[in-house]
Design a protein around this nucleic acid. Structure first.
Lengths: 364, 364
DNA sequence: TCCTACGTTGGGAGCGCTCCCATTATACCA
DNA sequence: TGGTATAATGGGAGCGCTCCCAACGTAGGA
């Protein structure tokens, strides 16, 4: 079967190329009867308009790019990326855009990928997941290329770009405040990398909670991790080697919290009795544990979808003043923070269920 | 800055459009001196050829599609998908292809996505992750559309399509044989869904190992899961409710094994002393456990990359007889199978390390 | 009845490349 | 030195659409 084109359908129906094009593009200026005949022909022949020709003529590709820098290593261990991707992909489907995925790992990748992205006729716009210091020049590059751009996550220099982020400071503040309310005195932080805005913001929330509630900051209770389970494990070992060990830990990610909890158990300490834990993410990691993690739930999938919507708005309505959109979080209270014991009630654990839903507290 | 085209560069350098095109496409028929001047102009102007125009004229988009059916739910919990995606994305970068990602969840998604994929001028070829019964018609559809196609995973009807798979039967056979060699008598199976070839093949390997080594099959020791942690947990509870409980479990995925191990611990049983576990995947799931899982390592990332290579070969060299490529696996022996104890040695656990590498046995 | 307005339709002119063929420049041999 | 093979170059045609404008038809008002 030779490839059909608009012209062929036109000939078949006995109308012009333009009329078929109008039908395909839902242009109202076609008589209903003609539209029906064209539609029939399209249906019966299985005609699909050629994407490249359409893009060339209309200067719109209906494709958006999702760029995940550094992801090649982290996509292994960090459930954040699959969830974000899912949110973005679903929204793309919904709005009839195609999603082009760019996983950038090495410098070599960058040199192959970034020119391709800046090229016209491939993408209508780009979403860059960011928040790392090293991403600045990439963002600058796309800004220079004048391609519609939305950043997922707060970039270091955010004044002239549109970005979406979750409210990391408030979320961390809530989590730590929760531990303080439960009577914990020495609350440690396993932070994210401080060369990332996520790491920075969650740390700031931790510090804010302490100072707002009259706790003094003990630098020896702050250890930096890199969002991997291993780093959480080592960070916890360091915290436990302290003269006076912590009685609670706020971890900037669930995966690090799991590492920390493993180190805690190995040291013969009980969770939450000896040390309470609160994590960050709530992205359904399968855990081999009878202790369910209290954590900050960030709406990553919706976040990804929202990112797409903002980008499409940018594509279709042209340049606008940069927008900064911040999404809220929830604190999900399960076992590891000791809330159940502290409140004299039963564990929130609904015995035997693979994962309980916990008690949810909206951040705002 | 107005968008540059080939013609503009040509005018700038004082040559023709065709010559610039030759330089851009590395055609050898250009004098070195002219090539240099053109290259300089391209460099200094930052010219990028328009992707859509190129695609339209050459009938090649240098884009391939990765279709993940059912993935919208599983991408949450199953690390297989991110790993496969990573392998595919890296290979795409390497060969200068763009990757278009299609996450298909609902029937609605299908109706939006599949016509787009069949459309000419968007994709040069498609990789479909498969192995589920329901995917047959999708595959048939792409075969009909005559688009270069490679299946990742063995499809149910595989005669007329090219696919890649790992050797699930052998891998499962090895895993179960390992448990038998360690002296386990009642070896249970937490299988994958039997409406998938993965589930079927791993089950067949289990059955094969038993029969080859003179064990009888006890149907009450076989429970079907769906690759989620929850299903592993429930499956294990069912197994433990047995009159005579198993002394070993082979799980068709690590995530289900983790669910199973959680149920085992909750029942007050020891791993591996009371029940030994062997999983399948080895995709670095963060575990809150002092027990490291013995498992079958499947080379998912390389598998994804290989899939791309086979597809590109198909794209560039035209239709060939369908190829069926099967990749080997390794058994990674850690703590949960009890090999260390059985062999009278120490645990293979290198005390305190976040995750040990285990002892690797190549399948073949 | 004619004229105007508007809804409908057709076709030309691109979009920015690649591909092919014709033409010109260069090298090599007799 | 002329003739021929070969390399380098230029430009037309076309890829399959969209967009725009002109042309046509029909209805409604004067």
């Amino acid at each position: 079967m030779a490839e059909l084109k608009l012209e062929d359908i036109a000939k078949l129906v006995g109308v012009s190329r333009s009329t078929v094009s109008r039908v395909v593009n839902d242009d109202p200026h076609v008589r209903p009867e003609v539209r029906r005949r064209v539609l029939d022909a399209i249906q019966s022949t299985g005609f699909q308009p050629n994407a490249a020709a359409r893009t060339l003529a209309s200067q719109r590709s209906w494709t958006i790019g999702l760029v995940l820098p550094h992801s090649v290593s982290f996509i292994f261990t960090d459930p954040y990326y699959p969830h974000l991707t899912k949110g973005v992909a679903q929204a793309c489907n919904q709005y009839n855009y195609t999603l082009a995925l760019f996983l950038v790992g090495t410098k070599e990748d960058e040199e192959r990928i970034y020119p391709r992205i800046s090229r016209k006729g491939l993408l209508d716009g780009v979403i860059v997941q960011s928040g790392h210091h090293g991403d600045q020049w990439i963002i600058g590059r796309f800004v220079d290329a004048n391609i519609p751009l939305v950043i997922a996550g707060r970039p270091f220099r955010s004044d002239n770009v549109t970005y979406l982020d979750i409210d990391n400071v408030n979320a961390a503040n809530n989590a730590v405040s929760h531990l303080i309310r439960l009577g914990r005195k020495r609350i440690a932080l396993i932070s994210g990398p401080v060369n990332s805005t996520v790491g920075l913001d969650r740390k700031q929330g931790y510090l804010k909670a302490l100072s707002e509630r009259g706790h003094t900051v003990d630098e020896s209770l702050i250890v930096e991790g890199d969002f991997t389970e291993a780093s959480g494990y080592y960070a916890m070992q360091q915290l436990l080697a302290n003269d006076r060990r912590p009685d609670a830990v706020f971890s900037a990610s669930d995966v690090m919290a799991i590492g920390g909890m493993r180190a805690t158990r190995e040291a013969g300490l009980r969770i939450p009795e000896d040390i309470a834990f609160v994590g960050f993410d709530d992205l359904s990691i399968p855990q081999l544990s009878d202790i369910q993690l209290t954590t900050v739930r960030q709406p990553v999938v919706q976040f990804g979808a929202k990112t797409v919507e903002v980008l499409i708005d940018l594509i279709e309505n042209g340049t606008q003043p940069p927008r900064h959109i911040i999404m809220g979080t929830e604190l999900v209270i399960r076992d590891s923070c000791g809330a159940a014991q502290a409140m004299g009630g039963k564990s929130t654990r609904s015995g035997g269920l693979p994962a309980n839903h916990g008690v949810v507290m909206r951040s705002y």
